[in-house]
Design a protein around this nucleic acid. Structure first.
Lengths: 158, 158
DNA sequence: GCTGGCCTACTCGGATACTTTCTGTCCGAGTACTGACGG
DNA sequence: CCGTCAGTACTCGGACAGAAAGTATCCGAGTAGGCCAGC
């Protein structure tokens, strides 16, 4: 039970995309080069982000990726759903009926499942509070972004 | 990113142990038989629970396991720590320095790491609110436990 | 000189291997009961 | 008859495979720009 590494990588990918001027694109290869990630896996992640509707992709020469929403509209929940999928954290394997014996269940729902769902919802609520915009602002405090912007201007395409 | 199946299994193991009279023991094989779990893996899980100090084990003939704490003192956090380990949910892979370029970090800590830690703490707080006693009471509502207690009286040893 | 079509180069996208984690198994270490033997 | 001692049966405990998920890769599909030929 750990975050996929892809979660962190996606965050950085989106942070880069958030600094690209409107109507411009950047290739996945440029991003993976900068972040020193596997180019193929970066593409795979970005594909997932496209599916989730967080970013747009343009194919062909001068193609690339761009943010589909404003950074303030993208939350960690979105990223989490895109990369980890929407499946529940917890799937009960019906141990309760084994424990209780057959024909002894009054409720259809296992109460442990209920508790777990509650926890999962609380967890999602935590993720929902954090937007990409916030992360970006936090990052900007910790170092000078001009170097990044300079690099971005070199690699973006219209 | 999912709960290990072992988490749920451990919960049920502990629920069984919580209904055993004081100073009595039950073997892992009896438990795995009742819950229809792999006997070996059940032992493995219970070993982890012993390491965490949640249950006691006695070896030898008439040996077995028993709860080491009262159910009200055992939280989901304890179980989680025992099974999943105490490692952080999130390990940053220092992508920030790749993004920023070397020699450009003002702060020593990546702010994303900070956000993630905040979320992880919130998550642990959620788990901490749920005790084994609560789970037991919830379960008792949903079905008749007399069948379980009867079975327990048959298999426990002093 | 302008327009249309074709070609090429470059992009994303999906099917395919490799690695790590999780699950499950087997055999050895240790202890309490049991039974026999001797006093 | 009672106490002691050794054997045995049963338990947990740790080292060893198999399965599943996560990570990384390669090659094909598709598009936009550039070049050339024809008008």
């Amino acid at each position: 039970m750990k975050f996929k590494a892809g979660i962190e990588q996606s965050i950085y990918i989106l942070l880069i995309l958030s600094r690209i001027p409107h109507d411009h694109y950047i290739t996945s290869d440029d991003i993976s080069l900068r972040l020193r990630l596997s180019p193929s896996y970066t593409k795979k992640l970005m594909k997932l982000l496209v599916h989730e509707g967080l970013i747009n992709s343009t194919t062909g020469k001068n193609g690339g990726f761009a943010l589909a929403k404003s950074p303030s509209e993208i939350t960690l929940t979105n990223i989490f759903n895109a990369i980890e999928g929407r499946g529940a954290l917890y799937n009960d394997s019906d141990l309760l009926s084994n424990l209780a014996g057959e024909n002894n269940i009054k409720k259809s729902h296992c109460s442990i499942k209920l508790v777990m769902d509650t926890i999962e919802n609380g967890w999602k609520a935590l993720l929902d509070q954090v937007t990409l915009k916030q992360l970006e602002e936090d990052i900007m405090v910790s170092f000078d972004v001009s170097g990044i912007d300079k690099w971005i201007n070199k690699v973006i395409k219209k």
